[in-house]
């Protein structure tokens, strides 16, 4: 087990370097003046430009630049945004909101996705199964921002069940609606994956043996079918964090949630290059670390891979 985690950690290192390098390479090595790139459409402000040159060590050779950028990244020295505030400071302030949102979305998609998926899987071919399958396809087919607008309009404005825009300090309750929107597409995926997995495991030999042992149907389902079916679902949930981050940009934008996504959204709209690079780099780090956590959970669920 320990060895497994160490190995996953070691495998993570090249990925970390690769991903940050990719970001850095895209920004600073593609054709065009990187300073101009960071400024976007607005005119280059010489004072800020000088500061940026220093921040990104643009006078140094490329590889040195990259390693200095890495050093800045891990020491959380992320430079200033265009209004002069340190990006790190901003992030510390807005990160908790996004984490709350992500946790709520994850809980929503996991709990409901698994419950619906299990019930559909156990009743394969019945009405419930068919309905849920079609509904999940429709959810996947609708872009998240359309879902967001519609939910905001219907639940927030028409029905008045929730605040259509969050703003302010963004407490847990206020975030429920945006979290549902954020988790909706993944909910459909979790549901479908759980269903497939349940159906596959129902026909496994060990399930038949468990039945032959004299276990009740309920126990066979919970102990032998469910536990084994969760393995691919957990893998998916881990990989899905990336999609949640992307989705958070849209969702936070629509519901005016003062989180990392919205900040990134605004930076994109304003063309604030340096802030975009910093935030994306941090998010990539978070994503890689979260995947390591999922690996641990995975090893706990599936004893076979601890020894692989």
């Amino acid at each position: 087990m320990t060895w497994y985690i160490i190995r996953r950690f070691l495998q993570m290192i090249p990925v970390f370097f690769g991903a940050t390098f990719l970001v850095y390479f895209l920004v600073f090595s593609l054709p065009g003046d990187p300073i101009q790139a960071l400024f976007g459409d607005r005119p280059v402000n010489e004072a800020v430009a000088a500061q940026l040159r220093e921040q990104y060590n643009l006078d140094e050779p490329f590889l040195v630049q990259y390693f200095l950028y890495l050093k800045n990244l891990v020491t959380f020295n992320l430079g200033n945004d265009f209004s002069g505030r340190p990006v790190a400071e901003v992030l510390v302030q807005i990160f908790p909101v996004t984490i709350r949102l992500a946790i709520l979305a994850l809980i929503f998609e996991a709990v409901f996705g698994i419950i619906f998926g299990v019930v559909a899987g156990l009743r394969k071919g019945k009405l419930f199964d068919g309905t849920v399958l079609v509904a999940s396809l429709i959810v996947i087919a609708i872009p998240i921002f359309v879902l967001g607008f519609v939910m905001q309009f219907v639940v927030g404005v028409k029905l008045g069940w929730a605040k259509p825009t969050v703003g302010g300090d963004a407490g847990w309750l206020d975030l429920i609606l945006p979290a549902i929107v954020l988790g909706l597409v993944s909910f459909a995926y979790v549901l479908r994956l759980t269903r497939t997995s349940i159906i596959e495991n129902m026909h496994a030999d060990y399930v038949r043996t468990a039945t032959a042992k004299g276990l009740s149907r309920q126990r066979v389902v919970v102990v032998h079918i469910l536990r084994n079916s969760m393995i691919p679902v957990v893998t998916f949930l881990g990989a899905d964090l990336g999609a949640l981050m992307g989705g958070a940009i849209v969702t936070e934008g629509i519901f005016n949630v003062p989180g990392v996504g919205q900040r990134l959204y605004q930076s994109v709209l304003r063309g604030e290059g340096p802030t975009i690079v910093s935030i994306v780099s941090v998010l990539v780090m978070v994503y890689i670390l979260a995947n390591l956590l999922v690996d641990v959970l995975y090893a706990w669920l599936d004893p076979r891979i601890r020894y692989a």
């Binding site: 990719l22 970001v23 895209l26 054709p31 990336g242 849209v250 690079v277 990539v284």
Partner: peptide, 26 residues
């Protein structure tokens, strides 16, 4: 496999945001 992992570590929308704000693409 590692190369794929690197691209995987950059979620689609985040990656697109980086690319699309580059001067060449913009």
């Amino acid at each position: 496999a590692r190369l794929g992992d690197v691209f995987f570590a950059l979620p689609l929308i985040l990656g697109a945001i980086i690319i699309m704000q580059l001067p060449f693409f913009r």
